[in-house]
């Protein structure tokens, strides 16, 4: 399935190949001779087969479309059968549909190129960041990172609040999923730069929910989306989205994310 990528890495799919062929013709997309393109496209597919590469389904579908277009043009206009299928109503020309897709794909490819140049430029600009000067109200020293055992200790103290272990009872489907909780945590963390560990569990209603939130948190730490710090010995663990400790610990909640995002 993905074999064609190895040898023909430039072509990410049939549209990419088609666009390449159009470019080779050095004409506007609207002016392109699709019958010639069809021949070249199929020649390329044959080449892939000669190289013993599996031709991906998308390429075959595109080849079929091109052959269809070509075959239609062999007939005089008045003998062309109106193509069946709802998409072909109102005399929709399959050539136009193909060109439409090509234009759309090309625009997004160009947009991707613009994003890429921005990506490059972002590597070239440096932010103005004055070093943190020692002022009167400066904050605590750098906090050490937290180990897994600290986290387990913290969560088990939270679990103590939910002591009602269901001794006997119905076994019901788990109402919470880790991915759902990850989503919730991600939303929560955008509202402030850092959170106290216990705050993440404030809304939990059962042991199961605490455990699921905890698993979600561990997963996000693994994905490096969350970082944990402890400002003082035996102090409460703080969770933040930044690898560096936040300068001013728990900031007031009204410091929300900018509105224009």
């Amino acid at each position: 399935m993905s074999n064609y990528r190895v040898q023909f890495e430039v072509f990410e799919g049939p549209l990419d190949l088609l666009l390449h062929l159009v470019k080779k013709e050095e004409v506007d997309i609207y002016q392109v001779n699709l019958t010639r393109i069809a021949n070249e496209f199929i020649a390329y597919l044959n080449q892939m087969q000669e190289l013993d590469l599996e031709v991906a389904g998308e390429f075959v579908v595109m080849a079929a479309t091109l052959i269809y277009i070509k075959s239609r043009e062999l007939l005089p206009r008045d003998q062309q059968v109106a193509a069946p299928g709802p998409e072909e109503e109102d005399g929709d020309d399959p050539r136009f549909e193909l060109i439409r897709r090509l234009v759309e794909y090309k625009k997004f490819k160009d947009a991707a190129a613009q994003l890429q140049s921005r990506e490059t430029e972002m590597g070239f600009i440096y932010e103005h960041r004055p070093g943190s000067l020692e002022f009167a109200a400066q904050t605590s020293p750098r906090r050490p990172e937290v180990s897994l055992f600290d986290l387990i200790g913290a969560v088990s103290s939270i679990l103590k609040r939910y002591n009602t272990r269901d001794a006997v009872g119905e076994i019901s489907a788990d109402p919470y999923t880790v991915s759902e909780k990850m989503e919730e945590l991600r939303t929560l963390i955008t509202t402030r730069s850092s959170f106290r560990f216990s705050e993440l569990f404030a809304a939990a209603r059962s042991r199961t929910e605490v455990v699921v939130i905890f698993l979600a948190m561990l997963e996000m730490i693994r994905l490096k989306q969350f970082f944990c710090f402890q400002s003082a010995d035996f102090g409460e663990i703080e969770v933040s989205t930044r690898p560096e400790p936040v300068e001013n610990p728990p900031t007031p909640p009204d410091e929300s994310i900018p509105p224009s995002a």
């Binding site: 002016q31 001779n33 062999l74 206009r77 050539r95 439409r100 613009q114």
Partner: peptide, 27 residues
């Protein structure tokens, strides 16, 4: 985002004539 308006809804002009036909074909 660059060209935001254009890319959110891409207007495509149906060309005056679809020159997709091989000129050698009489049909």
């Amino acid at each position: 985002l660059p060209d935001a308006d254009e890319l959110r809804r891409i207007p495509v002009q149906r060309p005056d004539s679809l020159l997709t036909v091989d000129p050698n074909l009489a049909t």
